[in-house]
Amino acid sequence: MAHKLANSLVVLDFETTGLSPDNGDRAIEIGAVRIVDGEITEQFQALMNPGRQVSPFIEDYTGITNAMLADARPCDEVMSEFCDFIGDDNLLAHNASFDQKFLEHELKLINRHYGGEFTCSLLAARRLIPESDSHSLGNLVKHLELAGEGDFHRALFDAQMTAKLWLSMLNVINEQFHISSIPFSLMQQVSCTPKKQVASLLQDYNLQQCSF
Results as ranks from 00 to 15, higher is better:
residue 2 A to N: 12
residue 2 A to F: 11
residue 3 H to S: 14
residue 4 K to S: 13
residue 8 S to G: 09
residue 9 L to F: 12
residue 10 V to W: 01
residue 12 L to P: 00
residue 15 E to N: 08
residue 16 T to M: 02
residue 17 T to L: 05
residue 18 G to P: 10
residue 21 P to L: 07
residue 24 G to F: 12
residue 24 G to I: 15
residue 25 D to S: 09
residue 25 D to W: 02
residue 29 E to I: 01
residue 29 E to A: 07
residue 29 E to K: 02
residue 29 E to R: 02
residue 30 I to R: 03
residue 31 G to L: 02
residue 33 V to E: 01
residue 35 I to E: 01
residue 35 I to Y: 01
residue 35 I to N: 01
residue 39 E to G: 03
residue 40 I to K: 09
residue 40 I to Y: 04
residue 43 Q to P: 03
residue 43 Q to G: 10
residue 44 F to N: 03
residue 44 F to K: 05
residue 45 Q to H: 12
residue 46 A to Q: 13
residue 47 L to E: 03
residue 49 N to L: 07
residue 49 N to T: 03
residue 51 G to S: 08
residue 53 Q to K: 09
residue 57 F to N: 03
residue 58 I to L: 02
residue 58 I to M: 09
residue 62 T to A: 04
residue 62 T to M: 05
residue 64 I to Q: 04
residue 66 N to E: 06
residue 67 A to E: 15
residue 70 A to Y: 07
residue 71 D to S: 15
residue 71 D to E: 15
residue 71 D to A: 14
residue 73 R to D: 15
residue 73 R to Q: 14
residue 74 P to G: 07
residue 75 C to Q: 15
residue 79 M to Y: 04
residue 79 M to L: 15
residue 80 S to C: 13
residue 82 F to G: 03
residue 83 C to L: 06
residue 83 C to R: 11
residue 84 D to G: 10
residue 85 F to G: 07
residue 86 I to W: 01
residue 87 G to M: 09
residue 87 G to P: 00
residue 88 D to Y: 07
residue 88 D to M: 08
residue 88 D to S: 15
residue 90 N to S: 08
residue 92 L to Q: 01
residue 92 L to H: 02
residue 93 A to M: 05
residue 94 H to F: 05
residue 94 H to R: 03
residue 96 A to V: 00
residue 96 A to W: 00
residue 99 D to T: 00
residue 99 D to S: 04
residue 99 D to L: 05
residue 99 D to K: 03
residue 101 K to T: 10
residue 103 L to E: 02
residue 104 E to D: 13
residue 104 E to W: 04
residue 105 H to A: 15
residue 107 L to C: 11
residue 107 L to R: 13
residue 107 L to I: 10
residue 109 L to T: 10
residue 110 I to V: 14
residue 110 I to H: 09
residue 111 N to R: 12
residue 115 G to N: 15
residue 120 C to H: 08
residue 121 S to N: 08
residue 121 S to K: 04
residue 125 A to E: 04
residue 125 A to M: 06
residue 125 A to C: 09
residue 126 R to K: 15
residue 128 L to P: 01
residue 130 P to R: 09
residue 131 E to L: 09
residue 133 D to C: 12
residue 134 S to T: 11
residue 135 H to I: 06
residue 138 G to I: 01
residue 138 G to D: 09
residue 141 V to Q: 00
residue 145 E to F: 03
residue 146 L to P: 08
residue 146 L to K: 02
residue 147 A to R: 14
residue 148 G to M: 03
residue 154 R to G: 01
residue 154 R to K: 09
residue 156 L to Y: 00
residue 159 A to T: 01
residue 159 A to N: 03
residue 164 K to M: 02
residue 164 K to G: 00
residue 165 L to T: 02
residue 166 W to N: 03
residue 166 W to M: 06
residue 167 L to K: 01
residue 173 I to W: 06
residue 173 I to L: 09
residue 173 I to S: 07
residue 177 F to R: 10
residue 178 H to L: 15
residue 178 H to I: 12
residue 178 H to C: 12
residue 180 S to Q: 08
residue 184 F to R: 06
residue 185 S to C: 13
residue 186 L to F: 06
residue 187 M to W: 06
residue 189 Q to T: 14
residue 191 S to A: 12
residue 191 S to C: 10
residue 194 P to S: 11
residue 195 K to F: 11
residue 195 K to L: 13
residue 198 V to G: 13
residue 199 A to F: 11
residue 200 S to Y: 14
residue 205 Y to I: 06
residue 210 C to G: 12
residue 210 C to L: 15
residue 210 C to Y: 13
